[in-house]
Computed example of a mutant assay.
Amino acid sequence: MENINLKSLEAFRAIMQTGSATAAARQLGLTQPGISRLLASLEQLVGFQLFYREHSRLIATDEAKLLTSEIDLLLNNADRFLALARNLHKTETGSLTIVAPHSFSSGPLADAVASFIQLYPKISVSIESHSPQTARDLVAQRSIDCGFIQLPETHPGLIIKPMLDSELVCAIPAEHPLSNRATMNLTDLSHEPLVMLGQGRPSRQKLEKLFQQNGVIPKIRLETHSVATACAYVQRQLGIAIINRVLAQQYLNSQLKLIPLEPSIHHHYGFIYSAYAPMPKLVAAFCQHCTQFFSTNDYAF
Rank of each mutant, 00 (worst) to 15 (best):
E208Y: 06
M184N: 02
L164Y: 10
K219E: 07
I144R: 02
L109F: 05
F148Q: 04
L222S: 05
S143W: 02
M184K: 03
A248P: 00
V216Y: 01
I144N: 03
Q249K: 15
S124Q: 15
A135K: 00
V227A: 04
N214A: 07
L138G: 00
Y233D: 07
V246N: 13
E175G: 09
I243T: 10
V169H: 09
P202S: 01
L158C: 02
Q212Y: 12
A248T: 08
L151F: 02
E167M: 09
I160T: 15
Y233V: 02
V169D: 03
A241H: 06
V113G: 05
D137C: 01
I242E: 03
A112S: 09
L222T: 12
S143D: 03
L189V: 08
L109A: 14
K209Y: 11
I217W: 00
F148L: 13
T154Y: 13
A232N: 13
I127T: 05
P152L: 09
L197G: 00
K161M: 05
A112N: 05
F116N: 14
P152N: 10
T224E: 06
G200L: 01
S190H: 08
V195D: 08
L138K: 15
P121E: 07
T154I: 11
D111L: 13
E128S: 08
R201C: 01
Q133A: 14
T154V: 11
K209C: 07
A171C: 06
I144S: 01
S179A: 15
Q205K: 13
G200F: 04
L178R: 07
V227Y: 01
A114Q: 11
A135V: 02
V139S: 01
P218I: 09
T224C: 05
P132E: 08
A248H: 10
L189S: 06
G198L: 01
S143T: 03
G215D: 04
H176S: 07
L186K: 05
R201T: 09
